[in-house]
C-alpha cells in the first residue's frame, strides 16, 4: 500500500465487497481531496451505499483498502479504516448520516448533539465514576459541549427547536439535525447518504449552502471539513461538487469534474440505458437522466 498523497484525505484502493454470490462492489478505487466535496453517484443498486458502509466501518470489505490521511500526520502513515472496529472509525475522524434518518427520536435535539460528543464527555467524567461523585471537571466539559451543540443548532437553523424531541421535528429539520449531530463528533471527513432525499427545492438549496459552509470551515467547528456525498438530486450534486465519481453495477465508470462527468457518454448510457432515452423510459431513470442532462438549468428533479 502506498502512502496517501498530501492533498487526499481519503483513498479507496481496489475496494471489493461480496455478499455470498453477489459482488456488490468490484475493485473500486478513488480519492477524496482534502477540503473538497466528492460526490458518489450512480443508478439504484450501483453499490454507492455499500462503498459508504465500507468507508464508515459498517461493513468489513472483502478486498482492498480504505485509507484516511489525518492532517497532523501528513506524510506519516495513514489510518487503515478497513481494519478498525465500527465505533473507532469516528475517533479516526469519519462521521456519517443515514439514508433513512436515524435520530434518537425520544431525545431532544440538544440531547442528540450531546450524545454525539459522548467520547469527549466520557473522558471528562473519569468514565462515569468521577461524575457520579460530582468532580468539577465534568460541569466545565458539559458546558463546553452544550456551547458547541448550541453553535451547531444555530448553524442548522434549529436553535428554537433545541428542546423539542427529535422525532417531533419536521422532515427537513431532522435531516439538518442529523448533519449537525455528525459534525458534533468533530470529523475530518463527513459522509452524507442522500441528505437531500425528500427535501423540497428550497430546502435543497439551503442544504447545498450548508454543505458549502461546512467545507469551507465557516461553520462552527472552524476547520474545513471534507465531504463525501451520495446524492440523487443532480441539481445539488452538480452545483456543489468538486469531483464526481460515478458507479454502475459495482464498478467505477467515470471520475472527474461535474462538467466532465455530465458530458461522459458512459454516464449518460448508465443512467438512460444503452439506447437514447425514449418516452417509455422507467420513471427513475427519467428523473435522474433529466437531472444529468439538464443540470445547468437549475435544480433537477428530486429522486
Amino acid at each position: 500500500m502506498s502512502g496517501v498523497a498530501g492533498t487526499d484525505i481519503l483513498r479507496v484502493e481496489d475496494l471489493s465487497m461480496r455478499f455470498g454470490g453477489l459482488l456488490a462492489v468490484a475493485g473500486v478505487s478513488f480519492e477524496a481531496a482534502r477540503g473538497a466535496i466528492t460526490s458518489l453517484i450512480g443508478p439504484n443498486g450501483a453499490g454507492k451505499t455499500t462503498v459508504f458502509n465500507c468507508v464508515t466501518g459498517f461493513y468489513r470489505p472483502t478486498g482492498g483498502a480504505v485509507l484516511l490521511q489525518a492532517p497532523e500526520v501528513a506524510g506519516g502513515a495513514p489510518v487503515a479504516l478497513h481494519r478498525l472496529a465500527g465505533h473507532r472509525i469516528v475517533r479516526a475522524g469519519v462521521a456519517r448520516t443515514f439514508q433513512n434518518i436515524r435520530l434518537f427520536s425520544g431525545m431532544t435535539a440538544l440531547e442528540n448533539l450531546l450524545v454525539a460528543q459522548h467520547n469527549a464527555l466520557m473522558a471528562a467524567t473519569g468514565w462515569g465514576i468521577g461524575a457520579v461523585l460530582g468532580l468539577v471537571r465534568y460541569p466545565r466539559a458539559e458546558a463546553a459541549a452544550i456551547d458547541r451543540a448550541r453553535a451547531w443548532l444555530a448553524a442548522t437553523n434549529l436553535l428554537e427547536r433545541a428542546d423539542d424531541p427529535a422525532g417531533a421535528l419536521p422532515y427537513g429539520a431532522q435531516r439538518r439535525l442529523e448533519i449537525a449531530r455528525a459534525m458534533c463528533t468533530d470529523p475530518l471527513l463527513l459522509c452524507l447518504d442522500e441528505p437531500a432525499a425528500g427535501l423540497n427545492p428550497r430546502e435543497s438549496d439551503q442544504l447545498a449552502a450548508l454543505l458549502l459552509r461546512i467545507r469551507s470551515g465557516e461553520a462552527p467547528n472552524g476547520a474545513p471539513c471534507s465531504i463525501l456525498l451520495i446524492e440523487h438530486d443532480m441539481g445539488v450534486v452538480m452545483r456543489i461538487s468538486d469531483r464526481v465519481v460515478v458507479l454502475d453495477h459495482g464498478r467505477k465508470i467515470a471520475d472527474g469534474t461535474p462538467a466532465a462527468v455530465r458530458a461522459d457518454p458512459k454516464v449518460i448510457a448508465a443512467y438512460l440505458g444503452e439506447e437514447e432515452a425514449d418516452e417509455d423510459a422507467p420513471a427513475e431513470a427519467g428523473v435522474a437522466g433529466s437531472g444529468v442532462a439538464g443540470a445547468a438549468s437549475g435544480p433537477g428533479g428530486t429522486a
Binding site: H87, R91, S105, E111, H118, T125, G128, Y138
Partner: peptide, 30 residues
Amino acid sequence: VTIRLRRQPLGRAWEALREDEIACRALGIN
C-alpha cells in the same frame, strides 16, 4: 445513582442505545 447517571454521558448513551443502536455506533459509542 440512577438520577445522576441519567444526566451524565453514560446515562445518555444508555438512552441513545435504547433509541437506536446503529446510530450510536456511527457516533463512536462503544
